[in-house]
Amino acid sequence: MNAQFKKGVLELIVLESVRKRDMYGYELVAEVSKVVDVNEGTIYPLLKRLTNEHYFETYLRESSEGPPRKYYHLTAAGVLYRDALEAEWLQFSQQVNEFLQEHGA
């Protein structure tokens, strides 16, 4: 898949993944990897950026195996941002689809 496509949509997928329940880094990466084939290393910087922009909150929780894990939680601002992104994405994909269909017909 086109790298530019991925980059634009990745944010939405990450935000959506965390919306239902809080996740720790590796879990989140695994979840996102199910949807798009992406370099796992690039998701952490994205999480970092969204955290810096206050769309995520993080907290540590002990785990039964290994060191404590850092969990990501979507903030209210994050939810709003996710909704805005979703709306943008739907509009955009609809426009592109319509365009393709018109040309195809």
């Binding site: 370099n39 796992e40 290393g41 690039t42 952490y44 910087p45 994205l46 970092k48 950026r49 810096n52």
Partner: peptide, 17 residues
């Protein structure tokens, strides 16, 4: 190796800041 190029990775991390 799955992380790819270190330079690209570092660039993306820095971009977040």
């Amino acid at each position: 190796r799955d992380f790819g190029s270190l330079d690209d990775l570092a660039a993306e991390i820095l971009e977040a800041y």
